[in-house]
Computed example of a mutant assay.
Amino acid sequence: MSHADPAAALTRLLAIMVRLRAPDGCPWDQVQDFASIAPYTVEEAYEVADAIARGPDFPQLQDELGDLLLQVVYHAQMASEAGHFGFAEVAEAICSKMIRRHPHVFGEAAARDAGMQNRAWEAQKEAERADRAETGTLAGIPVGLPALTRALKISRRAARVGFDWPEPGEVLDKLEEEAAELRAELPAMDKARQADELGDLFFVMVNLARKLDLDPETCLAGANAKFTRRFNQMEARLAARGLAPADAGLAAMEAEWQAVKAVEKD
Rank of each mutant, 00 (worst) to 15 (best):
E167R: 09
I154V: 08
D164Y: 05
V161E: 09
E170Y: 10
L186D: 02
A184C: 06
E178W: 09
K174F: 13
R160S: 04
L186Y: 14
W165A: 14
R150Y: 03
L152P: 00
A147Y: 15
A188H: 09
P146V: 06
A158D: 05
P168H: 15
A151Y: 10
A180R: 14
G144I: 01
A158K: 07
R157Q: 02
P187G: 04
A188K: 03
K191V: 01
E177N: 15
L182C: 13
K191Y: 01
R156E: 13
D164G: 01
L186F: 13
F163N: 05
E176Y: 15
E181N: 09
P187W: 06
E170W: 09
D164I: 06
R157D: 02
K174L: 14
T149G: 04
L186V: 10
L175S: 08
G169P: 08
R156Q: 11
E185I: 07
E176W: 12
K153Y: 01
L148I: 14
D173I: 12
V143W: 03
M189I: 00
E170H: 12
E170N: 12
S155W: 01
A179G: 07
S155I: 05
A180I: 02
A188V: 01
L148N: 11
L182E: 03
P187S: 13
A179S: 03
A179K: 02
K174V: 15
G169A: 15
A180E: 02
D173P: 07
R156F: 06
I154W: 02
K174I: 08
V171P: 00
D164M: 07
T149C: 05
A188E: 01
P146S: 07
L175R: 04
D173Y: 12
V143H: 07
E167N: 04
K191P: 00
A188P: 00
L175T: 08
E170T: 05
V171F: 06
A158M: 14
A188M: 03
A188Y: 11
